[in-house]
Design a protein around this nucleic acid. Structure first.
Length: 370
RNA sequence: GGGUAGGUGGCGGAGUGGUCAAUCGCAGCAGACUGUAAAUCUGCCCUCUUCGGAGUUCGGGGGUUCGAAUCCCUCCCUACCCA
């Protein structure tokens, strides 16, 4: 068993746990910064670690395309290649089936892509996705799934995606060989709880060491996702980690935690940081806005991150106005730290048995923002 | 003093008789971003607007024409060249 998971405390549906991996323990609930191409954009691994990150993401599709999974393997694996000694979870490329949809043909065998880099054709099958992730050497590998958009789709398409995802999961499990890597399955089914239940039932029967909810935040309203989460999380085994893929905004994470989710990842803190948006306990602020031009206050008062300890909003405003690369770096750092602190505080609240109050308090503060 | 080339919206710079409130870039203002084809993208950017439009603009003044940023006259200004 590459990983083990134990629950440290529960508070209604919310859970605090500890997940042991070959590269260290992870206390949950946890946010995992996204490092798609073998780097959390804009940050050095030291900055990622110092911000409090316990585990980060990498991506099968991107790394297989460039620099190539065999090259990464030959250079000692992804941990060594990118100088990140902690746990790594790799996504399977299933999300690219969705996000690069116009260039993808899906068959029962796999997904035929066109490289977004040079247009060359390539095929991602369940077996290939497993092999790539084994070459990368991540601690947790995701099965290849099909993730339909919930904006413009039909029940038939969602059902087809579930069927395919279940079949692909079985193939991924069958060809998985690395004993030091755990493989997580992904539940699809959109907002249809019956479909989700059916999908979860089949995947749980295959006995994966962890389970993810995929196919959320792909076009549906945040409210409908929040409404569906408790029932969906309850479909997953209690004694195994539950991962809500790709989510999300701070309020989405708190809703996920309340529903019983343990793991999250999202590009939002880094992407929005690069685009001059900072998350704070009093709501988001846009550092490019003129009102910060002469503001000597830190991005978030009371935040101990390197950005807030040393720089003013006025300076950040200047960096973004001047298009200096330090701006994206500093705000990515702050945002990652904000997300990690949010999950740490959530864990503390669960252990103290006051998660509901913590949750309500955060929302009240965000909503009170001008 | 003579000659040449020019004066267009905050800036740069298109346009050279009608479809021009005037391409485009920059600057400015605001917004978006959820398993990263994103340090990206979108909207606004003369004035007013019930967002359908309406009103004043292309150095100043005068003129030609149904119609001018675009043609003519004149004045002012700028750059360069010759004295």
């Amino acid at each position: 068993m590459a990983i083990s998971f134990q629950l440290d405390a529960t508070d209604q549906q919310a859970r605090a746990g500890t997940m042991a991996t070959p590269h260290g323990a992870v206390r949950t609930p946890v946010f995992m910064p996204v490092g798609t191409q073998g780097t959390v954009k804009g940050l050095t691994p030291e900055m990622v670690r110092d911000a409090g990150s316990q585990i980060i993401l990498g991506n099968t599709y991107h790394l297989a395309l460039r620099p190539g999974d065999e090259l990464v393997r030959d250079l000692g694996g992804l941990h060594r290649f990118m100088n990140w000694p902690g746990p790594i979870l790799t996504d399977s490329g299933g999300f690219q089936v969705f996000s690069l949809a116009t260039q993808v043909k899906i068959t029962d065998d796999g997904a035929k892509f066109r490289s977004h880099i040079d247009g060359s054709p390539l095929e991602l099958t369940p077996e290939r996705a497993v092999r790539i992730q084994e070459n990368l050497g991540s601690d947790i590998a995701m099965v290849l799934d099909e993730c339909p958009s919930l904006k413009e789709t039909t029940p038939a398409k969602v059902r087809a995606a579930v069927t395919r995802t279940v079949r692909w999961a079985a193939r991924c499990k069958a060809c998985h060989t690395r004993p030091d890597q755990a493989q997580f399955a992904i539940v699809q089914g959109g907002l249809d709880i019956e479909l989700r239940a059916e999908c979860a039932r089949e995947l749980v029967a295959m006995d994966f060491p962890g389970y993810a909810l995929g196919g959320f935040s792909v076009g549906e309203s945040p409210e409908s996702m929040h409404a569906a989460l408790p029932a969906c999380a309850a479909l997953l085994p209690e004694g195994k980690p539950r991962y809500l893929m790709g989510v999300g905004r701070p309020q989405d994470l708190l809703a996920g935690v309340a529903a019983g989710i343990d793991m999250f990842d999202c590009v939002m803190p880094t992407r929005n940081g690069r685009n001059a948006l900072a998350f704070t306990a009093d709501g988001p602020i846009r550092l490019r806005n003129a009102k910060h031009r002469r503001d000597p206050a830190p991005v978030e008062s009371g935040c101990g991150c390197y950005c807030c300890a040393n720089y003013s909003r006025a300076y950040l405003h200047h960096l973004f106005a001047a298009d200096e690369m330090l701006g994206p770096t500093l705000l990515s750092l702050h945002n990652v730290e904000f997300y990690l602190r949010l999950m740490r505080d959530a864990r503390d609240a669960i252990i103290a048995g006051r998660y509901a109050a913590f949750h309500a308090g955060c929302l009240a503060r965000w909503n009170a923002a001008p």
